[in-house]
């Protein structure tokens, strides 16, 4: 047993360290909270700014706006140029998504249900187009498109968008497939189903929400594509991102705020649908 005065000193020392630790913990939490709050604000403000400014009634860009109203939306809906751009974007995105699905879904089955050598390497290779520096990749595609006479063609743009969009379906469907027990297929086969029937009736059926979620993400990817279109689209093919890009590049047309707001709404709704679909798939 230590002498009394020693014990007091030990206790005092421990108390002091406790206090220091509490102070340090509070500082840590406070510091972390502050940084996160500022980061969140900086992420939110530009988006909020766009939405707010879309309700400016000024003909030219002013900050803060002099008057408020729905002028930008009126301008947007009465000018044909934006409608054409949206239509072209849809016309490219829809086939790109369909092709992406037809490419990705069979591949996911082959990768997960065969013993083919290199199948996992192939799966990893599937996301290459998401990680290569896009402007360099665009030049590479430019070279091939010149060679194949695909430059500035509709078909070329569908292919280019498919390349960027299919990894979404590949990734989402692969993740979903790993959550479906293979025993379901086996149960179906013992009950008398052929492999194809077990795939189609059980696994594919259960994958549908994930495939749809992936398709929505693929659609967003294609609908938003703004790099390849600049390199491969030529002057004639103006998609919505290209139109916005050109407009922003050569001045700040306040109509863009209205387009941006609607686009944000559209994308967020699609993404929430995709999220909901992925949840139901689980």
């Amino acid at each position: 047993m230590a002498p009394l005065h020693d014990r007091n000193a030990v206790t005092a020392d421990r108390n002091r360290r406790e206090r220091m630790r509490h102070l340090s913990d509070r500082a840590t939490r406070l510091g972390g909270g502050t940084v996160v709050t500022i980061a969140a604000l900086l992420l939110l403000i530009p988006a909020a700014l766009v939405v707010a400014l879309s309700f400016s009634n000024d003909k030219y860009f002013n900050f803060p706006p002099r008057s408020w109203g729905t002028r930008q939306y009126h301008t947007l809906f009465t000018s044909p140029q934006w409608g054409d751009a949206i239509w072209l974007s849809v016309k490219i995105a829809v086939p790109a998504v369909v092709l992406s699905t037809l490419i990705a879904v069979p591949a996911v089955f082959a990768i997960n249900r065969s013993r083919l050598p290199l199948r996992h390497a192939l799966q990893a290779a599937g996301v290459t187009s998401l990680i290569v520096p896009l402007s360099a990749y665009a030049v590479a595609m430019y070279g091939v498109f010149v060679q194949l006479h695909l430059l500035a063609t509709y078909l070329g743009l569908v292919i280019a968008n498919t390349v960027l969009a299919f990894p979404m379906i590949l990734v989402v469907t692969t993740a979903a497939m790993s959550r479906i027990p293979v025993e379901l297929e086996l149960a179906a086969m013992t009950a008398g189903a052929s492999r194809l029937r077990a795939w189609a009736g059980i696994t594919l059926r259960l994958l549908i929400p994930a495939i749809l979620a992936g398709a929505v993400l693929a659609f967003i990817t294609s609908f938003d594509e703004a790099v390849f279109i600049n390199f491969l689209g030529g002057p004639g093919q103006v998609t919505l991102p290209k139109a916005v890009f050109d407009s922003v590049r050569f001045g700040v047309d306040p109509v863009i705020t209205a387009i941006a707001t609607l686009l944000m709404l559209f994308t967020s709704v699609l993404m929430l649908i995709a999220l909901r679909l992925r949840r139901t798939g689980q």
């Binding site: 027990p181 025993e183 379901l184 086996l186 149960a187 179906a188 086969m189 013992t190 009950a191 008398g192 189903a193 052929s194 059980i202």
Partner: peptide
Amino acid sequence: PADRSAGMVFQQYALF
């Protein structure tokens, strides 16, 4: 498996 005329019960049920 379809042609073997067996019935299988799994530990994790494997109900559709």
